[in-house]
Design a protein around this nucleic acid. Sequence first.
DNA 1: TTGCTTGATACCGTCGCAGCATGGACGTCA
DNA 2: TGACGTCCATGCTGCGACGGTATCAAGCAA
Lengths: 311, 311
Amino acid sequence: MDVTLDQVRCFVAVAEELHFGRAAERLKMTQPPLSRQIQKLERMVGAQLLDRDNRRVVLTAAGAAFLEDCYRLVTTLDEAVAHARRVEGGWAGTLHLGFTAVSAIGVLGPLLGLLGRELPSVEVILHERVTGGQVDGIRRGEIDLGLARPPFDTSVLSSRVVAREPLRAVVARDHPLASSRGPLGPEDFDGVPVIGYHPTTARYFHEMTVRFLVNGHSRIEQHVQQVLTAVILVAAGQGVAFVPASAAALGVEGVVFKPLTDLGGGHPDSEPARPVELHAIWSRGALTPMLRQVLHLVQRSAQEVDDALGE
Amino acid sequence: MDVTLDQVRCFVAVAEELHFGRAAERLKMTQPPLSRQIQKLERMVGAQLLDRDNRRVVLTAAGAAFLEDCYRLVTTLDEAVAHARRVEGGWAGTLHLGFTAVSAIGVLGPLLGLLGRELPSVEVILHERVTGGQVDGIRRGEIDLGLARPPFDTSVLSSRVVAREPLRAVVARDHPLASSRGPLGPEDFDGVPVIGYHPTTARYFHEMTVRFLVNGHSRIEQHVQQVLTAVILVAAGQGVAFVPASAAALGVEGVVFKPLTDLGGGHPDSEPARPVELHAIWSRGALTPMLRQVLHLVQRSAQEVDDALGE
DNA sequence: TTGCTTGATACCGTCGCAGCATGGACGTCA
DNA sequence: TGACGTCCATGCTGCGACGGTATCAAGCAA
């Protein structure tokens, strides 16, 4: 046979009361079965835990040591149950969060702050990957939630817009366009060398660049994979590039960010003024309670960032 | 109702096998009651721990978290049982060890070393007290084992000789007796001022001094309580004193230790050559398993010290 | 379709546990 | 000193919980 938690609870009661009658009362039972449980426990443990004659009950050294461990035992159990409930409710656990190196600027920071405040028992593990890598990670179960750019395979992924921001042109500080007034249109870049993006690994910005320049006569000369690379090449005098407004936060020296005329013809529900979208993505059907919790916070975080920008 | 350890064990088995049939086999039971136990556990915990359809079983996030805690739980229980057994056998626990400041020199060190090696799970708490204080401590349960000088109240205390050593005379380096040859007898101290001990608080050395000097004509001029004090007074030129041979280890400068002629008429079973006895004492009837273990080591330790001295 | 696997359910027998009554040892009080 | 009270242990009994057998239902394979 084996030691039972009931026996442990009985022992704790008796050890604290040092009196079988009162202990039985506390356990809402009668004294005889309590005596038997203690006897059985002592037999299982293989040590005399209580020294008792007909007059008094005292803990043996072994009993005192065992009592300490019993406290730890019941505490551990209570915590285990509470923890399981919290995890089930999404209030605790581990969140594997994917994000893109530059694109999440201005979103990831506030989100992590909010997570730390609102879900302190959730451990966040960050995975910096490009959009494609995040999609693979989600499919393999390595990532629970990603922050990435469309488009996604909506048959296996669910998504939600987290942030929209304007598209900007980056030009070197000594470039003629740097001193222009007002928003720039596609025609302003006629004949200007443009740093473009890789059509597959940076598909989103590639298409956005192409869409902006449609019907124009500029020359797309490079195919970088990251926004940061594009900005650095601009600073090096290699041409101009189109980047999300938040790229200004990268702090690259020697470049200026210029507004653009609104981009038409994007997704039907996109805002022309802020066409660059960041989405939260997760495995369709794997909307765990924790993901639900986190998505609420993602929305709140995006809202707060929006409000701050609106001021 | 309440969570049972059996349910926990069932859950661990299923969570590890991810298969009710195999888990049941491992638990030496059939599958239906196992299913019921898991259901009941989930009801008790208040969270779904296993996601199962008719084809496969997977842990939920809550289940994975709970599993970790379950491991801790059973480990804690096993350790608690093992610990209780060790304590009962005297292999672990806490030992309150009393000793006298100077008298235990040469005994306490080796004993503590041996305890640390042989009973590493026994925590030793030292209590430096004079013999009387140790006796009180034992009576109050504050001390388990004392290292003290006779006589004791043998109706409540058991004792065992731990060490015997010669009595020596301490004299200042520039004292006439310092350069004498051979053992000194009582007559050598005729007319010499002798530092004596307090008749009640240092009864043992008081009586030993008086017994040695019986029929002599020396003057006992002080009544110190500790051996160390006596040696220091000797160094200060206040006279000579009688101390255990191990007092040489105190390292007081400016004194020399001189052998004495054998002391007759001590206890019937005492050795005249080594009349100063150190006893281990404990509460009669409170010979716990741990005390038994420790007493063995005390004997071994004394034996080793004796052997070392004999070389 | 049949057959196999696997978890859930129904039903039943048995074992264990709790409760009741009592015993036995010890202290207390008149 | 004997009657009484206290307190833990033990014997006995009834019930409830648990495990086993049989079966079902769902999904996959050939």
